[in-house]
Design a protein around this nucleic acid. Structure first.
Lengths: 335, 335
DNA sequence: GTCAGTAGGTCGGTTCCTGTCCTACATCGA
DNA sequence: TCGATGTAGGACAGGAACCGACCTACTGAC
């Protein structure tokens, strides 16, 4: 079949190197002429293959106007999936939805032998500070994304803010990420009204097979924003930073006002104190917090904890096995 | 052309929903019979398409044994690229190389109109603490990855540890990630010897077009490990954590020994104090540091900084514009 | 200049592909 | 229980596409 050969050819050409026509002909078990024709076919499909002339020339796939089908080996597929899983955990502004869509697409076709690798590797992510239960399970996210794409009614269990658990039957309309949290905008059939669900409080998602009958609001983004800002606890911080304004503006989101060449004023808001403290600490500069008082108290608590942790002269507890040959310190880094 | 239709069909089937044959026939502008035959073709290619029988049945692509070609729209491609870029910045143990390979593959064919989006979005990543210049430029990484895959000799400028800059001509053999740093294992033609280069010190990578003539060591991993452990500064930390051993083991890499049900002993090593401190703080529990003394001092300095930052009653500097209507705090989260 | 590579035209035989029939079977809902 | 609506798949004939073999033209490196 010629389609299979075309895919194989694409797969070969996607490894970033030059392929002489003879080698391609051999690998695809066809004549050189046919390889040329296949290359022409790929070009017709919109995937530009450039050929460098002369001795030791060859074919190479370059960027065109359309994305060619990506042909991945197992490891690459796992790597991409892991990347998308962490992207779902720490959504990047502007492509949150596309990340989840891509993850759902990939999950749908990912061979089962690779799934456990993705799961185990995806779990070993860099932990960012947050409250318990903050972490979104990517599987839940993709299940909901599939339902949204499929326009399919779903059932799930929901843990409300007051701790009450309930079973819901909803028409899922859209997944949105706000800050570091995911929300599902849906029509709740039991309540017969639109609701905004926090995805990390959703569990046991089950497809019903029924089609969606309700419609989403004409401006989902505005709806979500209104719901969120009226309901989510938010801490607005005002901090003086001993660092140039331009450096700060690059590093953190928020409103940065330069005070002088070496200090600036930052206004930022977040939904947890942990997160605010984390962003401030990782800036690595001196700073003073003016508001809110909760953040001042939080930082003072953290300082106390660190002081306790670095109490001088604490001996290692008995029973700890002796360390082998200690690794060298302060040696020069490799060239 | 039938290959084009097959790709389109694959593309449709990859969106996670069910497709009735009639709709597919319409979209592909062929008869129902041909759709059935195309589905059969896909199955022959190893991509399992399941069909649910009965009224409102349809076709769906499911996970098989081989990865089908991924057909992505622009946004999904950007999302994947951004995910891989951050994965290159924060390599996940075990798939570092595959991540870069996938990124190189994607970069090669990514339409130019999407590149700037990837660049700008990829820059806005969560900053993790580290020394200056720690961050690897993903573009450099993919350039080197391409050279490795292409077995092509490259030129670059290198900033040695002592600050001396030099031009190098090398045969790149392999990219390896150790901890959070990338290294290039290569044969340096000027020195005529194997060298290990830190990728963040490499600049201005340029392909020469010449083929590689040297061979990599029979056991690259061992070679790199030997080079690294003999040369890189490493801090070995010994810390008592007031958290259950199993929780800790999940959250941080290192050797965890339970002391009792609620505390454990952690041995971990890293190349910067910032990184060690960061991992300990984000655990969120009480802890005591036994070794090394540098870490104790580092934490004490951090505690002092936080104490200064949370000095009571610091008024906001004059001239700061009054904040508009303050956002609500402590209101209930949305249902 | 020579050599080794790509680019591309032509031609005949063969293969494959397509649409139109047809029947068989599964599933849901009335 | 029956009918509607879906998939599954065989048979067939006309047409389109594909393939290899041969040829010439062009390009770049040694």
């Amino acid at each position: 079949m010629t389609s299979l050969r075309l895919l194989n050819l694409l797969s070969l050409l996607q490894t970033p190197r030059e392929w002489p026509g003879g080698e391609l002909a051999e690998r695809l078990a066809v004549s050189r002429r046919t390889v040329r024709r296949d290359v022409e076919r790929l070009r017709d499909l919109g995937y530009p293959v450039v050929a460098t002339m002369g001795a030791d020339g060859g074919y190479r796939l370059v960027a065109g106007t359309a994305m060619p089908p990506l042909l991945l080996d197992d490891e690459e597929a796992v790597a991409i999936a892991v990347g998308l899983v962490t992207a779902a955990r720490h959504p990047v502004q502007g492509i949150e939805e596309a990340s989840v869509r891509a993850l759902a697409k990939l999950e749908q076709v990912l061979p089962s032998r690779l799934r456990h690798r993705v799961a185990s590797l995806g779990a070993a992510t860099v932990p960012l500070p947050g409250v318990e239960g903050f972490d979104v399970d990517p599987g839940r996210l993709t299940a909901l994304a599939m339902a949204v794409a499929n326009r399919e009614r779903v059932r799930f269990r929901y843990l409300a803010a007051d701790g009450a658990e309930s079973a819901r039957l909803v028409d899922p309309h859209r997944l949105v990420a706000a800050g570091r949290r995911w929300y599902l905008l849906a029509h709740d059939h039991d309540r017969d009204d639109r609701r905004l669900f926090r995805v990390d409080r959703i569990d046991d998602v089950r497809a019903t097979g029924a089609r969606i009958t309700t419609t989403e609001p004409e401006d989902p983004a505005a709806y979500v924003a209104a719901k969120l800002y009226s309901g989510t606890p938010t801490y607005g911080a005002v901090v003086t930073l001993h660092a140039p304004a331009e450096d700060v503006a690059r590093a953190v989101p928020g409103e940065v006002t330069p005070l002088d060449g070496r200090t600036c004023l930052l206004r930022a808001s977040a939904d947890t104190l942990d997160w605010l403290a984390f962003r401030l600490i990782t800036l690595g500069c001196e700073f003073e917090v003016h508001e809110p008082p909760e953040l001042v108290a939080h930082l003072r608590g953290l300082a106390a904890r660190l002081t306790r942790a670095s109490a001088p002269g604490t001996p290692a507890p008995a029973g700890s096995p002796p360390r082998g040959t200690p690794r060298s310190r302060r040696a020069g880094p490799p060239r």
